[in-house]
Structure formats: C-alpha cells, structure tokens
C-alpha cells in the first residue's frame, strides 16, 4: 500500500467521524421520534463503514467480517425497535399481523 493510500484512508476515517458528528446533531435536535430513529440507524451504518476503513488502515482486512456482523445487528436492532413501537411487544408475528389487517380492511370495504 502506498503512503498516499494510507493518508487517503485516514482522511476518509476522519470524514466518517465528521458525518457521525452531523448525525449526532440530528439526534440531539431531531423534532420527531422517527428522525432520531433514522439518525441512530445511519449512525450504525457509519460505524460499519468506519470499521471497514480502519481494518484496511491497520492492514488486517479480515476485520471486514466483523463489520458485516455489525451491519446485520444494526438491521435487526432497528427492526426490533420499530416493531416494538408499533405493537408494544416483541411477541407479534408480523406476517400474521399483516393478514389480520388485510381482513379488517376488506371487512371495512364491504
């Protein structure tokens, strides 16, 4: 790796930290709950990106696997939070919920 690449990656790591700070601003000032939720979600994405960049900075690209795990966990966590907000419980089968709503709508139409 050339020194230019090294400084390029370091610069991108700093840019990622700056964008984390911007997300933090939205999180602090966000008027609605959903702004905050989106801010947290994209903060998680920034974490994943930083992890990838940092693994290449220290020259151990196998750390990208850990970044992949972070991405999966971020996704599952956001789904869990949204589900909890909608149904107040994690014990709701989402597919069953959808069919129940559909039947309710069709009853309303008839």
């Amino acid at each position: 790796m050339t020194p230019f690449m090294g400084y390029f990656m370091l610069g991108s790591a700093f840019l990622l930290i700056i964008s984390m700070a911007l997300m933090l601003g939205r999180l602090l000032g966000g008027p609605t709950l959903y702004d905050r939720l989106l801010a947290v979600n994209s903060f998680g994405t920034k974490t994943v990106l930083f992890l990838c960049v940092f693994c290449f900075i220290i020259g151990r690209p196998d750390g990208v696997d850990i970044a992949l795990l972070y991405a999966l966990m971020n996704f599952i966590g956001t789904i869990a939070v949204l589900k909890f907000f909608n149904y107040q419980s994690l014990d709701v089968n989402l597919s069953a919920q959808k069919t129940a709503q559909k039947t309710a709508q069709s009853e309303d139409l008839s």
């Binding site: 939720l37 947290v40 850990i66």
Partner: peptide, 28 residues
C-alpha cells in the same frame, strides 16, 4: 426515547473506540 437512542449511539461510538484501540472482541 431520545435518551434510549443516545445510549445506543454511545455504545456504538465506544465500540468504534475499542476497535481503534485494537480490542475487537470487547467492541463486539
């Protein structure tokens, strides 16, 4: 709700910090 979200962000930032301190397992 904002506090709960901020706590999530706090642990994400500290996970990043642990990674840059080369403590990947703690970060995970």
């Amino acid at each position: 709700f904002g506090i709960v979200m901020l706590q999530g962000v706090y642990s994400l930032v500290s996970a990043c910090w642990f990674v840059s301190l080369d403590a990947v397992d703690v970060a995970f």
